[in-house]
């Protein structure tokens, strides 16, 4: 128990350090901006006085380290400053959008994880049959498809042609939950198709890897049916890599939402990010990037910790 605790604490420490470095990178992005931010925004015709006033308002006249501490302190308490494009509070812009994005990612995860693990197990069980091959071809091609292609095919098929689901996922706070789930179904399905392939292939590979182990052979020679061999003998030992790949795919989901949100006009963080990039609204981009990066790093950290925690060899000291 000592060993496992020590390793987990080490990972947490490393994760915190990564978060710190990433926040420095995102912050210094503005410093790298060629020329002066204030000048850039106000244009060439601005008088030195307006530029100075604007710099003061943004706090650009303070040294970078002070500004970094203020920015980080603000971000930690939910205050990201103001948007450069329209002067609105960024926290206000982000608020519900962040919740929407997390909801969408969670929706996709709830569909994708059981599907991927189930299909992976079946593919391992019926290895090298037509079922395995067709699932393989299907997943290989869905990895190769751009997200917007999958999204538009679904729109064309399920929305325009069959008319079952709406093609635009315009939800707001007053939308009732059931209605929300219906409107968010197509974006969630798109994300599911994109991440399932990877998770399923890894599940299959993790199980097949173990099937060559002597104790599996033993179980088979005892005369156990293949279903029991896989579920009782192989699966518990394959759990670590499977949990790992699930957590990594959740991290991928968080960034994968960007394109999908744009296609379905879903009011999430990804759309805000894309809009802000095209407006070069650097403070909003920074805030969005920080949130995405933090969530991404957290999921990677969870993957790390879980794969340590599920390793039985670390639980019992020699």
């Amino acid at each position: 128990m000592q060993l496992i605790l020590k390793m987990i604490l080490q990972r947490l420490g490393l994760g915190l350090f990564t978060l710190f470095v990433v926040s420095v990178i995102i912050f210094s992005a503005v410093e790298l901006l060629p020329g002066d931010l204030a000048q850039e925004i106000l244009g060439q015709s601005a008088t030195p006085e307006t530029v100075a006033a604007f710099r003061h308002e943004l706090g650009l006249d303070k040294p970078a380290i002070v500004r970094y501490m203020e920015w980080l302190g603000g971000a930690a308490t939910g205050d990201f400053g103001k948007s450069l494009a329209n002067g609105r509070e960024i926290a206000e812009l982000i608020g519900t959008r962040l919740a929407n994005t997390l909801l969408l990612a969670a929706y996709a995860a709830v569909i994708a994880i059981p599907l991927a693990v189930g299909l992976g197990l079946l593919a391992a069980l019926y290895r090298n049959t037509w079922f395995d091959r067709s699932i393989n071809i299907f997943t290989l091609s869905s990895i190769s498809f751009p997200e917007f292609f999958v999204a538009y095919i679904l729109i064309l098929w399920l929305s325009v042609h069959a008319g079952v689901f709406p093609s635009i996922a315009n939800i707001n706070e007053s939308t009732p939950l059931w209605d929300r789930l219906i409107r968010m179904f197509l974006p969630a399905l798109t994300l599911t198709l994109v991440v399932t392939a990877h998770m399923m292939r890894m599940t299959r590979a993790a199980i097949i890897n173990l099937l060559a182990a002597p104790y599996i052979e033993m179980a088979r020679l005892k005369g156990l049916p293949p279903r029991v061999v896989i579920l009782k003998h192989a699966l518990p030992n394959a759990l670590a890599p499977i949990i790992n790949v699930i957590a990594l795919n959740m991290a991928y989901l968080i960034t994968g939402v960007v394109v999908v949100e744009v296609v379905f006009v879903y009011p999430g963080l990804g759309q805000l990010l894309v809009d802000s990039v095209s407006k070069r609204d650097i403070t909003v981009v920074q805030a969005c990037c920080l949130i995405f990066a933090v969530v991404y790093i957290l999921f990677n950290l969870i993957a790390d910790v879980l794969s340590i925690a599920t390793n039985p060899r670390l639980l019992h000291k020699k």
């Binding site: 990178i25 995102i26 991928y252 960007v258 990039v277 981009v285 990037c289 991404y296």
Partner: peptide, 10 residues
Amino acid sequence: AIPQLIFALL
């Protein structure tokens, strides 16, 4: 450590 698409956008 930063997701690629997000970093590219930044």
